[in-house]
Structures are given as C-alpha cells and as structure tokens.
Nucleic acid binder design. Structure first.
Length: 527
DNA sequence: ATACATACC
DNA sequence: AACTGGTATGTAT
C-alpha cells in the first residue's frame, strides 16, 4: 500500500493501531482449563462451559462417547473459549454483548472455515507443548529444588544491579487514534459505532484497522475481519482509512513530544516513549503534572486525547498507561515497594511480550499473576529457557530498560500480499514478480541490500511455510530477488496459495559494498 | 543457518 | 464465503 512509502523507518509497519485492553479478561473469566492438570475431567469441563450453545455441544460431542473423544471434546471447548476470548474479550458483568449470541456468531462464523481449522491445529500444538511441559513438571513438582532456589536468588541479585530508579519514563498512547481522527472531521460519528477497514485483498470488506469506543461496546475491535464485525454490529458505520490524515495528526503530537524529550522514541503513529528526566530539572512540576501538561498540549494541538503511564522504566510505563485509559494517566512512583505493589496483582498477560499463548502456558504452570512468579521461581527456572526465565524474573521484579532512543537499525525488510487462491504456475510467478518489484522499490528508497532471501507462502489451508537462502553476496535488484525467490518457490510446487511474501535480511547499506556485493567496511576491519 | 511460532502495533 | 502487513525475536533443529 502506497500510504506506507513515506513513512519513516520502522513506523511504516503500523497498520492496525494499538489494541486497547479495555475489556480485560480477568483471571476469574478464564476457565480453569484442564490442561493445567493434564487430567481431563469431563463433568467439570461441561459444567464450566454449560453456557456454550447446546447444538454446538451436541455437534462437538459427536457420535462416540469413548475416552479419546472426551479428550477431543475438551480440546474443542478449550479452542472455542480461546476464540471467544480472542474476539470478544468482554469483562464479566458487561452486558452490552449477549454471551449466547456471541457463541452463536462464533459457531456460525467458524464452521467450515479453513481459518478455523488451522487455528484449531495451532491450538492443539500449543496443548501438546503444554502437556510436554506438564509432564516435566510432574516429575519435579515434589522436589525441594533447594539448589535451584539458590541459583535463582543469585540471579535476582544480579538482575537487581540492572535496576535504575533514577529515570522518569513516560509512555503515551493516543486513544482510539484513527477513529478519533475520523471523528474530528465527522463529529456525528462519535455517537455511532464506527470502524475503518483496510486490506480488501480477498474480497468482502477486509480487516478492521480501528474502532471507536461505541463500536467496542459491541465487541468490535481492531484486527477483526469485517464480516465478523458486521455480524456483531450490523449498524456499524464503515469509513475508509485516511493514512495521510493520521500522519498529519501524528506529526502534531510528535512536535509536543519533541519539546519534552528530543530523543523521544515513537513506536507507531499513535504511541511513543519519552524520558522526561532532564525536562524535570527545568521545572518545579512533578512528573504527573508535566504529563498532564503534555496531554493538554496534545489536546490543544489536535483536539485528540491521549493516555499515559509514568514510571521508572519502559515496561512499567507501558503497563501504567493501561490503568486509566482512555484519556487518563497513571504515575507509579520509583520506590521498590510501590513497584512491587503495582506489579504483583497484575495478570501475567499485562506484561508486554506475554501474549495469548504464553499466558496459556504459564497458566498451566499455575502462574496467573505476576506475584505467582516468585514462589514458582525454582520450578520455572527448571522448565523454561534461560532467556524466557530471566524475562519473567525481570517482569516480576519490575526491572526494565530505561533507554529511550530514536536511533533504529533495521534488520530485515519484506513485502507480502494476500490474494484470492492462486495455484497455476503462471499466476504464482506473476505474483512473485509483483512482490519482488515492490521490495526492490523499498530497497531502493532505503538504499539497502542484503544477502539472506526468504520466501513466505500461506497455503489456502492457512498453513504457513517459510524458506530461506543465504547468498554469497548482497542483492537488491528486482531480477535477483525474483530469481532466488523463484528457486525457493519452485521446490514447493504444486501449491494453492492465499499469500506470498519476500523478505531480505542480513542487510547493509548499498554505499558500503562494491559491485561484487562485498562489504567494503566489514567486521574484519575491527580486528 | 533454517524453519516455525509468538508478539507487537 | 470471508481472518492483514511489517518487523523483531525466541525456540528448535
């Protein structure tokens, strides 16, 4: 899409605006899925899911009543729960969405769709992973693990050295950004459910890019396919995306950031981190007072509201933004006790980097809130990789990076397209040429070349495959991209595809290489 | 190095 | 019927 072309560096990727966690699924909403024990208890399961549509239950139960099928039944319910939480994460007590209706929509929408079947496959794979972890867990759960506790506690001491409580980091996030910009021009949209769509690639309406707060009341959210949104809310007003307007608004917002931290780090059009430590030295105002001032200026400039979090590091600041959204802010004092008090009760899902899958895995290990990480630390140390474990430990301790820096080094660049099912050789190679052309254009404008070429294909079944090849030298020309990508594609034929993409990594600037594709100034010059 | 999965906006 | 695109990074082999 051409609206990306003028975007700066990594920000060009913003299509879907941030998903506001308005409707948090609290831990109480989560069914205590029996992967957590590995033992299927069908009575318990059916009791937990008694609200699920009767016909669905009958259908899923199938003709057989064997134990194996009970297990399959359990898995399917888990999956349905997953889908419901995915699309309609409505808080308990929110009656704006009729739960039975939601289930029905899910069922209607799911049946017979390749997407659904593929999601189920992925979900089963996660269950397999969880079960493998759980059998490991079973073996060690009664061990004292005193050595592990010692190791972990030493680790904690080391991590504490990383802690820096002397910076004041602010995370700012515009409220329903694209939708709010649209409402500026068309104020009547404020009171009706409204969304913007994009990507009409495969027909239909496409994917939802943003939704206003009225639409969210119906469970309509960004990154939802249009036809589901319309089923949820038939009166939904659809407006086209106007990326240049969002960029314009974003520029005004950024000019405010600039005044408080010239090194502010934009994460997308509607979101940024600021380090206001230096600014605080120039004023008598407290951190929250400064942030009120920033948000006031943003409002005066754009008539748009923003939410903010203020804390000792980026992770905490981001988590704080969520607390009083929309149009609010939260200040977490840089005191150990305050940080612990803030972190402990939060669901692990609130940790940036913990998504739906990781949440499920951790829940299975009886880790539901950040507080749970500590008593389980020796077990988690044994079960998780060093990287994952340290990541969790840092989150639990509230330790995070304080570096706010707009510098950015790109590591890869890619173009991918979704289309109506294609399987003939001619069509596929034509599409490949198209994509290579676009990538070559992007490489040109960014003055880049690279030597690892990757091909990504998504079959009509939604199965995704990636193939890559590291070449002897750097490439950037369309013909070269096309040539090597074709070689990778050739091996996959025959296939019926819905998506194709080309990625180039191991990048370097074109200025740094000579005609042979060899770097002039390489790592070797250091030695 | 490659493949695949997860996460973020 | 119908479920995006761009980038980074972790995990496994």
């Amino acid at each position: 899409m051409d609206h990306h072309d003028e975007d700066d560096a990594h920000l060009s990727s913003q299509i879907v605006e941030e998903e506001d966690l308005l409707f948090d699924d609290g831990p109480s909403e989560q069914p205590s899925l029996d992967e957590t024990t590995g033992n299927a208890d069908i009575d318990k399961i059916t009791a937990q899911h008694s609200d699920i549509d009767e016909t669905l239950r009958v259908r899923l139960a199938g003709p057989s009543t064997s134990k194996v099928n009970y297990h399959a039944l359990q898995r399917l319910f888990t999956f349905i729960e997953f889908l419901i939480n995915y699309y309609f994460p409505i808080q308990a007590g929110m009656d704006s969405v009729d739960k039975a209706k939601v289930n029905e929509i899910i069922y209607e929408v799911s049946k017979g769709s390749s997407f659904f079947e593929n999601e189920r496959k992925k979900d089963n794979a996660v269950t397999g992973r969880i079960n493998a972890l759980l059998s490991k867990y079973e073996r060690i759960k009664n061990d004292v693990l005193s050595e592990e506790f010692i190791i972990v506690d030493n680790m904690i001491e080391e991590l504490e050295d990383e802690r820096d409580l002397n910076q004041c980091i602010v995370h700012i996030d515009m409220d329903a950004f694209y939708a709010s910009v649209e409402e500026l021009d068309q104020p009547h949209l404020k009171t009706v459910p409204m969304v913007s769509f994009a990507f009409q690639a495969v027909g239909g309406i496409g994917m939802l890019c943003t939704s206003n707060y009225e639409a969210r009341k119906f469970g309509v959210r960004s990154a939802m396919p249009g036809y589901i949104a319309l089923k949820l809310c038939p009166q939904l007003k659809i407006v086209p995306l106007n990326f240049s307007k969002y960029r314009e608004a974003s520029a005004k917002v950024r000019s405010v950031f600039e005044q408080y931290d010239p090194h502010y780090c934009p994460m997308s059009l509607d979101e940024a981190y600021l380090n206001i430590t230096e600014h605080l030295k120039t004023t008598n105002k407290s951190p929250p007072e400064v942030v009120v001032e920033i948000r006031d200026k943003i409002f005066k400039e754009t008539l748009l509201t923003a939410s903010a979090g203020i804390a000792a590091n980026k992770m905490l600041a981001k988590m704080c933004t969520d607390v009083n959204k929309p149009n609010g802010q939260f200040y977490l004092k840089s005191e150990l006790a305050d940080i612990q008090e803030f972190i402990n009760p939060l669901s692990i899902r609130k940790i940036p980097g913990v998504g739906r899958v990781t949440e499920r895995v951790l829940n299975a290990l009886n880790v539901n809130t950040c507080k749970d990480i500590y008593p389980q630390r020796a077990m988690l140390y044994k079960l998780l990789s060093d990287i994952s474990f340290k990541f969790l430990l840092r989150a639990h301790l509230g330790i995070g990076s304080t570096s706010v820096d707009s510098e950015y080094v790109r590591k890869s660049i890619s173009v991918e397209r979704t289309f109506r099912s294609l399987s003939s050789r001619t069509d596929l190679y034509f599409k490949l040429k198209d994509i290579a052309q676009k990538l070559a254009k992007d490489l040109e404008s960014k003055n880049l070349c690279g030597k690892t070429l990757g091909l990504k294909i998504k079959l009509t079944s939604f199965e995704v495959r990636t193939r890559a090849k590291t070449l002897p030298g750097n490439i950037y020309k369309q013909e070269d991209l096309e040539k090597y990508a074709s070689q990778l594609l050739e091996k996959e034929l025959p296939v019926s595809l819905r998506l194709m993409g080309i990625r180039l990594s191991s990048l370097c600037s074109r200025d740094e290489i000579d005609q042979k594709g060899v770097k002039r100034v390489g790592i070797c010059t250091i030695f």
